[in-house]
Each structure stands twice: as C-alpha cells, then as structure tokens.
C-alpha cells in the first residue's frame, strides 16, 4: 500500500475500536486496538493497493482480540457463563457509559454470535468476509449474526421497549 498509513487510522480507527469493544469489552478494547494498528503499520507497505483495508484491519483485530482474551484468561479465572446480562462485569467497574448496558449485553452473547455481530453489524463486513475470519460458512455467519441481534433485542431493552426494526 502506497497511501499514507495515517489515512487508514483516520478512516477506520473508530470502527476498529468499536469492534474491539464489542469483542472484548471496553477495558481491553484499547489494548487490542493498539496491538492491531501497530501490527498493521508494520505490514502496511506489503498490503496490495487494491486490498479491502477495513476487512484487513478487522482480521488483524480478530487475531489480536484472541491474544488479548487469552492473556486475560491467564490472569483471571474465566467465567464460563455470564449469569445476568444486565449485571455489570466485575472487571469493568470504571466504565459508566450511557450505553454500557448494551455492551454488557453484547459481552454476554455466545462467542460466535458476538464475533459475527461485531464483524457484520459493527464493522460492516459482508457475511462471506465474516465467515473467512471466524471460520465456517457464510450462511452460518449470517445466522449467528441474526441470532445475536435477536438475543440482544431480548436482553437489551433500555426503556422496556422492544424495537420492531428488522
């Protein structure tokens, strides 16, 4: 890639941060973002000029998120099941964002649903691209994303209303 790397940060930095937050939660998102862009910077000159930069960054972010999650798992006792979707996670007490409940609900999704929601709905990648990153077929990625959103609609309803938007 011959374009200045700064353009990639400007154009995709915010989306990659939201993807990291969806996959890892707000606290570890910053680490994953930093590792993603440092790694992307090193590899940038070798990326073909016609590459899909966003998909490439999300692919790197996916690998970094896996690394960050593994490192976190080594530090703390993993919680297999998040018992209550609306309860704040104990390791993220400092986050008091207005939409914190939504991210708690996202964190409570099964992994495949969470990843497919993050890469399709947050990053805007098409299902085949999502499938390439998470494994499995495009149809399975589409289903996981749809199931994830359906579950979010039931677990996350801030004012007791349930959106009917499909």
């Amino acid at each position: 890639m011959k374009r200045p790397f700064e353009q990639a940060v400007t154009e995709h930095g915010a989306v990659v941060l939201r993807v990291c937050r969806a996959v890892l939660g707000p606290t570890e998102a910053d680490d994953a973002w930093s590792e993603t862009f440092l790694s992307a910077l090193r590899a940038w000159p070798d990326l073909p000029d016609d590459a899909n930069v966003r998909a490439w960054l999300v692919t790197i972010a996916h690998r970094k998120a896996v690394d960050v999650a593994r490192a976190g798992a080594r530090r703390a006792v993993p919680v297999a099941v998040v018992p209550d979707a609306t309860a704040p996670r104990a390791d993220q007490p400092e986050e008091a964002l207005p939409d914190g409940d939504l991210w708690t609900a996202v964190a409570a999704l099964p992994e495949k649903q969470r990843l497919c929601v993050a890469y399709h709905h947050v990053a805007g990648l098409p299902h085949p691209e999502v499938a390439r990153i998470v494994g499995g077929t495009p149809a399975a990625a589409r289903r996981a994303a749809a199931d994830g959103i359906a579950r979010l609609r039931s677990t996350y309803a801030p004012h007791g209303r349930v959106s009917t938007h499909v």
Binding site: F37, D99, L102, V122
Partner: peptide, 21 residues
C-alpha cells in the same frame, strides 16, 4: 433502542480516546 443502530454509534468520549490511542 435499536441495538443494530446503537452498535455503530460513537460512544461518549470516543474521540478523546482515539486521540490518546
């Protein structure tokens, strides 16, 4: 309260956070 829309909205303080990152 549409989760799809909320997921793609900037979080509060996101610009400052991105600047620091």
């Amino acid at each position: 309260d549409n989760p799809i829309q909320l997921l793609t909205e900037p979080a509060s303080g996101e610009d400052e956070r991105l600047a620091a990152l």
